[in-house]
Simulated scan of single mutants.
Amino acid sequence: MNRTISLRHLRSFVEVANAGSFTTAAARLFVTQSALTATIQQFEESIGLKLFDRSTRRVIMTQEAVRFKAEADRILRDFDSAISDLQSFAESQKGHIRIAAAASVIYQFLVTAVGKFRQQYPGVTFTLRDAGAEQVEQMVMDGELDFAITSRHKGIDELSYVPLLEDRYGVVCRADHPLARRSGPLRWADLGPEGFVAFTADTGIGTFLHENAGHWPVFGGERDEISSTTSLFAVLNEGGRFSIIPALAAKAAGFTDLAYRELAAPVLSREICLITRRLRSLSPSSQRMLDVIMDTIRAQALPDGVSIIGEEPAPRSPTRHTTHHTTRRKAG
Results as ranks from 00 to 15, higher is better:
residue 254 G to C: 08
residue 298 R to A: 14
residue 163 P to D: 02
residue 192 G to R: 07
residue 114 V to D: 06
residue 95 G to Y: 03
residue 290 L to G: 09
residue 280 R to I: 14
residue 237 N to G: 13
residue 21 S to M: 00
residue 67 R to G: 00
residue 168 R to D: 01
residue 203 T to M: 05
residue 142 D to R: 15
residue 31 V to W: 06
residue 232 L to T: 12
residue 109 F to T: 08
residue 12 S to Q: 09
residue 217 P to G: 11
residue 130 D to Q: 13
residue 74 R to N: 08
residue 226 I to V: 15
residue 101 A to F: 06
residue 303 P to T: 07
residue 23 T to K: 00
residue 127 T to V: 07
residue 322 T to F: 01
residue 179 L to M: 04
residue 39 T to E: 15
residue 140 V to D: 00
residue 176 D to T: 07
residue 144 E to Q: 12
residue 166 E to N: 07
residue 53 D to Y: 09
residue 328 R to Y: 03
residue 297 I to G: 03
residue 18 N to G: 00
residue 166 E to C: 07
residue 74 R to G: 00
residue 156 I to L: 12
residue 49 L to E: 15
residue 140 V to T: 02
residue 23 T to Q: 05
residue 28 R to W: 01
residue 103 A to P: 00
residue 64 E to R: 10
residue 167 D to Y: 02
residue 313 P to V: 09
residue 69 K to I: 04
residue 222 E to S: 08
residue 148 A to D: 01
residue 209 L to I: 05
residue 155 G to D: 01
residue 20 G to F: 09
residue 243 S to C: 03
residue 249 A to I: 06
residue 237 N to M: 13
residue 163 P to A: 08
residue 73 D to I: 12
residue 1 M to A: 13
residue 270 R to A: 04
residue 211 E to C: 04
residue 308 I to V: 15
residue 282 L to H: 08
residue 128 L to A: 06
residue 240 G to I: 10
residue 161 Y to A: 02
residue 35 A to T: 14
residue 243 S to Y: 03
residue 253 A to D: 13
residue 7 L to W: 07
residue 83 I to L: 14
residue 18 N to A: 14
residue 201 A to M: 07
residue 35 A to M: 13
residue 83 I to M: 13
residue 82 A to T: 13
residue 32 T to P: 08
residue 236 L to F: 09
residue 62 T to H: 11
residue 206 G to K: 09
residue 34 S to C: 02
residue 223 R to L: 05
residue 293 I to M: 11
residue 176 D to W: 04
residue 320 R to H: 06
residue 106 I to T: 13
residue 49 L to I: 11
residue 216 W to S: 03
residue 254 G to D: 09
residue 272 I to D: 03
residue 310 G to E: 15
residue 286 S to T: 10
residue 59 V to D: 13
residue 83 I to D: 00
residue 1 M to P: 11
residue 316 R to C: 01
residue 141 M to S: 15
residue 14 V to D: 10
residue 162 V to E: 14
residue 61 M to P: 14
residue 244 I to A: 05
residue 300 Q to C: 10
residue 214 G to Q: 03
residue 106 I to H: 10
residue 54 R to K: 15
residue 128 L to D: 02
residue 206 G to A: 10
residue 16 V to N: 02
residue 84 S to F: 07
residue 47 I to W: 13
residue 219 F to T: 06
residue 317 S to M: 10
residue 230 T to K: 15
residue 156 I to H: 01
residue 234 A to I: 13
residue 278 R to E: 05
residue 134 E to W: 00
residue 65 A to E: 12
residue 132 G to L: 14
residue 251 K to D: 06
residue 332 G to E: 03
residue 121 Y to N: 14
residue 42 Q to M: 12
residue 11 R to S: 13
residue 282 L to V: 03
residue 131 A to S: 08
residue 181 R to D: 09
residue 80 D to G: 00
